[in-house]
Design a protein around this nucleic acid. Sequence first.
DNA 1: CACATTTACTCTGACCAGGT
DNA 2: ACCTGGTCAGAGTAAATGTG
Length: 632
Amino acid sequence: MKIKSFIQRIEINEEESLSSFIYRLSIENLLDSINPIGNALGIKWWEMPLNLFDEVACRKISSLSGIHKNVLYSKSYHALLNGMSEKEIKMWFHRTKIKYCPKCLADKKIHRYLWGLKPICICLKHKQILINECPGCKNQVYMKALINGRCGYCNLHLERGESFKVNENDFIYLSQNQFQQLIIGNKKTAIRGLSPTKLMSLFDSMFRLFDGFESFINTNVSHLGNKVKYKPGNQLEMSVSIANIYWMLFEDFPNNFLYSLDTFYKSDSPRKKYRKRLFSNFISTHCEFDFIKKEFESYKETQIKNGLVPRNIETFDESSALKLKQMYYTKKDIYQKFNISRGEIAKLCNKNLLNPKKVVVEAHTNYYFDKHETEKILETYLKKENNLITKKEAANFLGVSVEAMVHLIEKDLIIQQEAFIKKQYPYISKESVIYLIQQLSKNVKPINYDDTKRFIVYQECLNKYVTSGLQIAKLLQWAISEEINVYSLNVDIKINQLLFDEKEIKKLLQKEDIENNGYNLGDVSKVLGFTDRTLHKMIQAKLIVPIGVSISKNGRRIYFFDKEHIDEFKEAYISPVAAASKYNVNYSMLNKYSHKKVLKNYMNGICQKTLFKKEELEEILMRKGYILRGNR
DNA sequence: CACATTTACTCTGACCAGGT
DNA sequence: ACCTGGTCAGAGTAAATGTG
């Protein structure tokens, strides 16, 4: 049977899909099935609900129904196909499944144009999420059943289905509104100038990226399902997914987008890198997505800046690795470039002298040291550190034993310093070692090998005189202050090769001994010019008082005299002979004074010598006019 | 010799691309 | 979804070195 025209004419609804119209037409004209019309159009019955009637088919339907072909074509999805890829077609169109709004259905038993499109999941008029199954038996709903208003399986009235209400200011509603406006051709609300096709593929790409993520926004259906899904199981999930992507890309862009990216990178979602790569490739395919690409790239840039990259980035992203290298040092870089041990780096970090950016990527902690700052800090650190050498090094350099170093440090000849970063032991200032050598070499006199016999070498010198109180530090101090001569065969000075004059050392040691321990009897004898016999008498008479007496092994008494006391004594008393020459007076006259007891002889009763007190003598000489007052 | 620090090396977990 | 091969850089460690 070939149909020429239908008797029963019906009007196509403003919002109706062409497929719906055809179904209604066949029912109104009491056809058993859709097949006769399908045959007339050359379209298989299962293709009818797809609503992809081309212009040829529309012309035929027009002649059958009497409605203008352009009106019919506008109800077909065919125009939407223009330039769509196979993939995009899958994104857009349902196959035989039908979804609907129960309230709309109650109003009119038609299938609305928008319902056939995948991204449409809300009835804006009734603010309800569409239903895609029989509310009773949960079976799929087909076009014929929808037009009949009853489920093909359980015969339930489909308009009785309950659906979820959506708030008008909910992102679910807002996003859906934008989408629908765009599809029905309201260019004013076009989103960033993207065509519906491009927009949908962008959403699809975003679904893949954020598949399985918890919703970023609160919706009034949050309690029912709250995840972004690449393949939504129902219209509720679809609406939440769309709302999320809409929020990310078109609400407060790029902040929400960047926030979402951040969440993505911080998540441990499976196949993260794969998703990332896919998305990255996608936004590079069309220049329409440049506004996203730009933000995506800048986000990546920020990630690099913050070191939030895998440590083997060099193997797959050379340019990012280079950027990172230009900004930061790693620990390894530091100990290679600055020759600093890992322990030192750790301590510098602990002391907060170095403040690396610590980035935890998965199980690793990556340390990023700001290049400029690190160089500055390490420069000063190394400068200080380079001035430090170990005791052993210093000892080798100077040519002395390590033990000797203690004495040199004690006498401030070299300076001990704690390392900038506390080490187990203190170090020696290299500067101070060099300075010591310089001081010495100023006074060192070069000699020939033949002359060496006249001198005593450093070690021998110490061995011999160490019991007399000679110390390396003392020796060097004398040499520096030129109190003794110091000689060397070599220009390169090593302390253990220096040569000294034994006599000079002996003399100085003696002098020092007196200064430290005072005079002994022999010293006093020399100083005062009295024999020991005389001195003993004077001691007995308490004219001279020793500060200490010790008994030697052989039972002899050993006296110690205070140097000052002896010096004062020498200063205070004078013999007639010395006085005669000093004051230029007659010796016998002075003797006469003593004899006549005009002047006291302090040796009287001790020995035969005569000793006056200078003070008393001068007093008399002044009175007699031999010397002038004040002219002593 | 005892102990602390440093060095020089290996080990480890992670991650990439690319393949199956 | 899993494997491979290569790479990275921090972590770990045995041996060497430094110090008293």
